[in-house]
Design a binder for these strands. Structure first.
Length: 208
DNA sequence: AACTCGGGGCA
DNA sequence: TGCCCAGAGTT
């Protein structure tokens, strides 16, 4: 079985096994996904969902969020860590999107990473999930899953990113990041991995 | 490369 | 009670 076939098989299984609504970041627009992703730094998806549900109901887009001061927004996201910097980033990014991008979230990596608080990971998540553009942010979870399953063998995150780009089928790009990261977070954990309940253990070189 | 922001989840 | 967490900016 080629690596590409393996990737396809693994992702299709994860698609069926991972209950999206409970754990996935919720969003209905590129802007909301961008904000949710900024908020997710050093926080869990559940915490983020709790905050964004209220926030987006009252302030759905960049124009609305700009009616808030930095302190007011910070108060609304105070249950998340790093809330002061996040508030600052979100308002600054909203301002730039309104003034420089005609109110729309830019659709290229180079433009996205120029936004305040948007780095490599956030940019890739937005490209893949909001715009269905092949992009994958390899973080520690994705890296670990890729190594254990043998989908990638590169030593660095960037090498792994390149390898995954080559083998993940086009139609699965949109879900690849969520699936791999959630699998890594809840099942293929760094410590105490749940191999007995792992739906893809038959593809794994390192069942424990 | 190291440091900082940071409340909540979980053992 | 201590460790960890969907990161990014600054020095």
């Amino acid at each position: 079985m080629s690596r590409a076939e393996k990737a396809k098989a693994i992702l299709e299984i994860l698609q069926q096994k991972i209950p999206a609504p409970a754990t996935e970041l919720k969003f209905s627009t590129p802007w909301q996904l961008l904000v949710a992703t900024i908020l997710s730094a050093q926080s869990t998806d559940k915490q983020v969902n709790k905050v964004t549900e209220k926030l987006f109901a009252a302030y759905p887009g960049p124009h609305e969020i700009l009616t808030l001061t930095e302190e007011e927004l910070a108060a609304k996201i105070k249950t998340l860590g790093l809330y002061r910097s996040k508030s600052k980033y979100i308002l600054a990014t909203a301002q730039e999107i309104v003034t420089k991008h005609n109110g729309k979230v830019p659709q290229s990596f180079s433009e996205l990473v120029k936004l305040p608080g948007v780095g490599r990971k956030t940019a890739n998540v937005v490209l893949a999930n909001a715009f269905d553009i092949p992009a994958l942010a390899v973080d520690t979870h994705v890296f670990r899953v890729a190594r254990r399953t043998g989908l990638a063998s590169g030593k660095s995150v960037l090498e792994t990113e390149k390898e995954l780009h080559e083998i993940i089928p086009r139609q699965l790009w949109k879900d690849a990041h969520h699936l791999l990261i959630l699998h890594g977070r809840y099942t293929c954990k760094a410590r105490n991995p749940q191999c007995l309940q792992c739906p893809i253990s038959s593809f794994c070189d390192k069942v424990m």
